[in-house]
Write a protein that binds this DNA or RNA. Structure first.
Lengths: 175, 175
DNA sequence: GGGCACATGTAAGCTGTTACATGATTAA
DNA sequence: TTAATCATGTAACAGCTTACATGTGCCC
């Protein structure tokens, strides 16, 4: 994107790629040092905190292209919400309800964030070449979030059904 | 679900929870041994390969409820497809296209699988109490997959736009 | 002068995968 | 009898996070 300090890089990853990527300081700084050793990035300024930025070199950009062309490494799925719902009989319909409500709220929050990112991208004058690609990732986030909301609404209705049929008879009569 | 060998457990995780969870043998066998030590599962038959199954005990079921009630541990996002699209300018619109097409095909394949799981669940006579919960997770998979397909179609159109405007003039004239 | 945000780095350690070793059972 | 599948287990190690240590510059 542009020359940055390691700290700024982390903030950019969190704020811009946050919905599909993350890196910790423990990854960033050693990697930056290694990339510098390989001549893929160049440090400007002394290593004193707050006074050096890293810029990608020409060979760094070439290496980036190489890496982007490599096959996508699949990450083993691990969705805690789905696992809890799968064992929903043991957890109880009420607890499931709160989990789904929470997931719904998360998705709504994400939708708002995507809106904000869209706005920010439209205002920015730089990176006009990159913008259309960046918007693709925002759009993916929006589709996913909207799907999550639709699923949550369906699921809340289904959980009500389950709750009603599971209730002890006197529970049901009391309504 | 029912008493199983470690091997069968892994197959069940892969085939039933596969779209939202995974465990490797390197996790399963040591964990099973530890659970047995704690009295949370009971081994029936000798430890000889092929002749022992593990069954959850009463205290094991209690422990399961405890664990299910714990807060969901968030997994740091790491979506290789999105990362590649974000750097799409460097990868090129054509390569992006194939990645998105592949993602679309994956989502279609998943939809078919969910259909199969739905069928299988409906045929099964056991686990009638669990079924409604299990179907919630299938439904989530379907929503996600359909969202992925819709996004992919939108994205393919957008990539055509990008490709057209990025083409060198003589390229465009030749069409 | 005190607190906060910016900034860099390291070390310990957790989590989980991959690869390997080994053996039983079953079907061709 | 040989290959495939079922089955159990271990060891090495990759990958990454967390916590800590340290320091700078700025603003109130």
């Amino acid at each position: 994107m542009e020359p940055m300090t390691g700290y700024a890089l982390r903030e950019a990853i969190r704020d811009v790629l946050g919905h599909f990527w993350s890196e910790s300081f423990g990854q960033i700084y050693p990697t930056l040092a290694e990339l510098e050793r390989q001549g893929l990035v160049k440090r400007r300024g002394s290593p004193r905190p707050g006074s050096s930025t890293f810029a990608v070199t020409a060979s760094g950009r070439a290496r980036l292209k190489e890496l982007l062309a490599q096959p996508i490494r699949p990450v083993p799925p691990r969705n805690g919400l789905m696992l809890r719902l799968f064992f929903g009989r043991h957890l109880g319909p009420e607890a499931c309800r709160s989990l789904v409500l929470e997931a719904r709220a998360d998705a709504e929050r994400r939708l708002v964030q995507y809106e904000a990112i869209r706005k920010e991208l439209e205002l920015e004058a730089d990176h006009t070449e990159d913008r259309p690609f960046w918007l693709l990732t925002v759009s993916a986030g929006e589709h996913t979030a909207r799907a999550a909301i639709a699923w949550a609404d369906e699921t809340l209705a289904a959980l009500d059904e389950i709750g009603a049929s599971t209730d002890a008879p006197e529970e049901r009569r009391r309504r």
